[in-house]
């Protein structure tokens, strides 16, 4: 389980939350949801899909939902009159480092190839749920779990009331563009959006199942990799822990199916093959952030979404080539996921 610093919810507590503070918290949420994506993608693309297909599918399914969570947070922010900021250098976290707003000592997110002993535990830590029944009382000054962070936002939005929502609805990325998205227009839909984020990330207190969607919460998806088996219902009960067990089909890990991509990639020597490929990647990643920024700021069209998907596919192709030693098998390269609006990067 990870915690975020309490300052992320500054101004949200008390009977009359500051709308600007709620918007700031939602921007923090967008940053936080995004920050796991490079981490997961780096591990995903380090895997040879032919040898570790099941693991790839699990990680990819989580990434897709992290993107949905970004969208849900952006919809909520837009509904409250804010404007998500995606396309600036400050949006991307620095790796290695804490997640945005995260507690420094708790977790250092490092771009690294997939591994059972290092990266998977990191992913599990990030996604580890906190059961509401176990919620400690929110102590003044204490760090927050992710669940508490979202609970504070939801509570503040409820206090703001429906009157705080922009009418007519504004800049919404709906389910027509992204499956399971929620058009946010009032407290009820905002609550639904936030609950989707929490449930998909953590599950509920009584079940690993997501309320929305057709899979397990992220923690349990990753646990399947650790346990080496699909999580399946047992038909037993009634205690929640008896209802499911990791005894479904095997999820094998083939350690020969991991490309020798670097841990903590970069910086690469200017002019090197690594720098050229990495610059191409980062330029495309920065382009994707720009496209998403536009998508979340009024250009919510299917063409814009298609462009984003195209860039995602291009990034996948580039990353897999880089990590698998294409064109030069002697050189494997890890993308650094840095903001880069020129190609090559200034200074390289």
């Amino acid at each position: 389980m990870i915690h975020v610093r309490r300052e992320l919810i500054a101004g949200l507590e008390g009977p009359a939350p500051d709308p600007a503070a709620v918007r700031a918290s939602l921007q923090s949420a967008i940053k936080l949801e995004h920050a796991t994506i490079p981490l997961y993608l780096y591990a995903l693309y380090s895997l040879d899909e032919a040898k570790n297909g099941e693991i790839c599918a699990i990680i990819e399914s989580v990434v897709v939902e992290e993107m949905l969570h970004m969208t849900l947070a952006a919809n909520t922010l837009n509904a409250l009159g804010g404007s998500p900021v995606i396309d600036g250098p400050g949006f991307l976290p620095t790796y290695p480092g804490p997640l945005p707003g995260g507690v420094q000592a708790e977790l250092t997110a490092t771009l690294a190839p997939f591994s059972i002993d290092k990266q998977l535990p990191t992913f599990l830590t990030i996604e580890e749920p906190e059961h509401p029944v176990d919620y400690p009382k929110l102590e003044a000054g204490a760090d927050l779990t992710i669940g508490q962070f979202y609970a504070a936002i939801a509570a503040a939005i409820a206090k703001l009331g429906d009157g705080a929502f922009v009418d007519p609805p504004r800049n919404q990325v709906g389910p027509d563009l992204m499956r399971e998205s929620v058009v946010v227009i009032d407290v009820a839909t905002a609550t639904q959006a936030i609950q989707t984020i929490v449930d998909q990330g953590e599950g509920t207190s009584t079940s690993p199942l997501e309320v929305v969607g057709n899979g397990y919460a992220h923690y349990y998806r990753y646990m399947q990799i650790k346990e080496g088996h699909v999580l399946e219902p047992t038909g037993h009960g009634p205690a929640p822990q008896d209802e499911y067990a990791y005894d479904g089909p095997a999820i094998p890990f083939d350690s020969t199916g991991v490309y020798p991509a670097p841990t903590n990639p970069g910086p690469y020597p200017p002019g090197s093959a690594q720098a050229v490929a990495n610059d191409n990647f980062n330029y495309a990643y920065t382009s994707l952030l720009g496209v998403l920024h536009a998508l979340f700021n009024g250009a919510a069209t299917s063409a814009q979404m298609d462009t984003a998907i195209g860039l995602m596919m291009s990034l996948k192709g580039q990353a897999k080539a880089m990590m698998s030693g294409v064109p030069n098998p002697a050189v494997t390269i890890g993308p650094t996921f840095e903001y880069q609006a020129t190609n090559p990067a200034n200074g390289s």
């Binding site: 191409n280 330029y283 495309a284 920065t286 382009s287 720009g290 496209v291 536009a294 462009t307 195209g310 860039l311 596919m313 291009s314 609006a341 020129t342 190609n343």
Partner: peptide
């Protein structure tokens, strides 16, 4: 300035 390619589409 420079002459650059797209910053909003695939190459």
């Amino acid at each position: 300035c420079s002459v650059a390619d797209s910053d909003r589409t695939v190459p």
